[in-house]
Design a binder for these strands. Structure first.
Lengths: 329, 329
DNA sequence: GTGAAAGCGCTAACAT
DNA sequence: ATGTTAGCGCTTTCAC
């Protein structure tokens, strides 16, 4: 490996001069600069980023921690993060939390390898986050329930969204409304369900246990939930899937059984994934402001980096997107 | 920031001893070890990963360079990379090549921040790759045309795949076969088109310029290509979309115009994306072995790291996946 | 088993 | 404008 020392020697200057030249610091005369650059080129010099970060005590990079790099994820959200990071001259890397304590995520979280982290991973334990969170190392948690000291949460109003979805169904004349839930340990799911229940109550509709079935947030889960619902003597006239992924699977399952959407049954989802508008009929759903979530999270990091005080909770709103999958009764 | 020095002081040992204890090196007696660990806990010590990497001169991490972190990408491929990296005790980070010379990707490529790179990004120039590639820094290029010294290429047999797709159409009685191409600067696209042409020639079918339309590898591009094709007096009986993304868009566009698939027109794609089997009718396509691409690329990196000789080109094969979108004439 | 000390490659304060 | 040098936090050789 060729170091700055060798470059300096070849250019007949001191290391400091070489460093200044290489970093474009004006102190150095144009001729010396060119000499250094030339030497660097000839030696094919590449700086050692770690050494430089170590010295400067700053990495100018942010990490985005995801449950699984290869999982499906919100590209809009990432774009939000990326845009803001770039605006501030920061780099962004993504890493996976698979492996828990031994994951790449853990390494970045604990070893001062980045200046801040955005965590969108449910496989990172609260325990670990607690151990790592301290001042001067900003951590933003997305969609987490538990509050952790010196950590900031960015959330979406899942409960209000669940309420809106259910209310929209009710306003279209539905009273027999099923809820297909995600995994029970999911904070998102819990809140969306709470919104569903609240809406039923607000409109004096008796909740029915048989109409709450679970679907694990996956397409397949949505299919089997739809099949369970369709097999009942007296099925619901509408179903609220706790995410679009399941709604898409559910729609397919209903249609396969000859049940027409929205004529025989109305469907509403949650998330507004890309596919929602390509499915047939187009899916009515609750949109999460994903780009804004990413952008806000990143803005918060920079505020924290500047030692500004930030509110520990930042909540964003949801919108009802009306398309074609709900019929007025 | 609390350093190992402070831990050592608190534990009343030398830094070296603290280092041994912290790294689980057996030299140190159980009691001293416990003393050190205790001190570290109390001080909430986090090691500085850079300092350690700098000293060890190895990062034990690989970078996966993508055109755009927020773009749609092959999660199967990433899983392949991830699995193999993990097996070798390496970490994996993903970063974006947006910004070219100033991108995060460039930083990782040039600054010795990782032990090897897998590049799946067309916005990294050959020039840059050339400057960076040298022995002891393994770089694997995915789906690239130009060969670069001391760099290894993993490819898929796009041309054979294009041939197979076209041949399958021909074997089903089609002779009026359109080709919807991707961006002209894409190596994948070029090769798939070459396969298409070769198949036509092999079966003595006259190629028709009016049946080659471009679609930019996007869903929208597929839609407009389909619309162009559908508007022709005498349209094709089959169309080969150079990727599934476009095929899905094209199918929707055809169906919107009342053209039935596969009754009125047959469709074949390329890639076998997840959606291919959820679309209606299910899409017949050419599958790329994406997991294997990722896994092979990563294996190659480790071979290079061990200074083993590797072949500069590694080609994987494609398979025809027959589903429902092609009809026998 | 433990400690002292060199040094990884770089930056920046200070001296010239 | 350029050079000398301390030191970032860590690992590891060598001496005890």
């Amino acid at each position: 490996m060729v170091t700055i020392k060798e470059v300096a020697k070849k250019a007949n200057v001191a290391v400091s001069t070489a460093s200044y030249a290489l970093n474009g610091i004006k102190k150095v005369s144009p001729e010396t600069k060119e000499k250094v650059l030339q030497a660097a080129r000839e030696l094919n010099y590449r700086k050692n980023g770690f050494a430089s970060d170590l010295k400067r005590n700053s990495t100018k990079t942010l990490a985005l921690i995801l449950s699984d790099l290869s999982g499906p994820f919100y590209s809009e959200l990432i774009r939000g993060v990326q845009d803001v990071a770039t605006d501030h001259g920061y780099d962004l890397i993504a890493c996976s939390a698979i492996g828990g304590e031994n994951s790449t995520a853990a390494k970045f979280l604990t070893e001062h390898r980045v200046d801040g982290c955005i965590v969108l991973a449910h496989n990172i334990t609260d325990e670990m986050l607690k151990n790592v969170a301290h001042h001067h190392f900003p951590i933003i948690l997305l969609d987490r329930e538990i509050e952790i000291d010196s950590t900031v949460h960015v959330r979406v109003s899942n409960k209000r969204g669940g309420f809106k979805a259910t209310e929209y169904l009710i306003q279209n004349g539905h009273t027999d409304i099923a809820f297909v839930s995600g995994p029970s340990n999911s904070y998102d799911n819990k809140m969306r369900f709470a919104g569903y229940q609240e809406a039923l109550q607000a409109y004096n509709i008796e909740p029915q246990n048989k109409w709450v079935v679970s679907g694990n947030f996956t397409r397949e889960g949505g299919e089997s939930a739809a099949n369970i619902l369709a097999a009942q003597d007296q099925g619901p006239t509408a179903v609220f899937f706790a995410n679009d992924e399941m709604a898409v699977g559910g729609m397919e399952a209903f249609q396969k059984r000859g049940i027409s959407i929205p004529n025989d049954i109305s469907i509403i989802g949650f998330d507004d994934i890309l596919e929602a508008k390509y499915v047939n009929p187009k899916l009515t759903t609750i949109r999460q402001p994903k780009y804004e979530m990413g952008a806000s999270a990143t803005h918060l990091i920079f505020q924290m980096l500047k030692n500004e005080k930030v509110n520990p909770i930042f909540e964003l709103h949801t919108d009802l997107i009306i398309r074609e999958s709900v019929k007025k009764l």
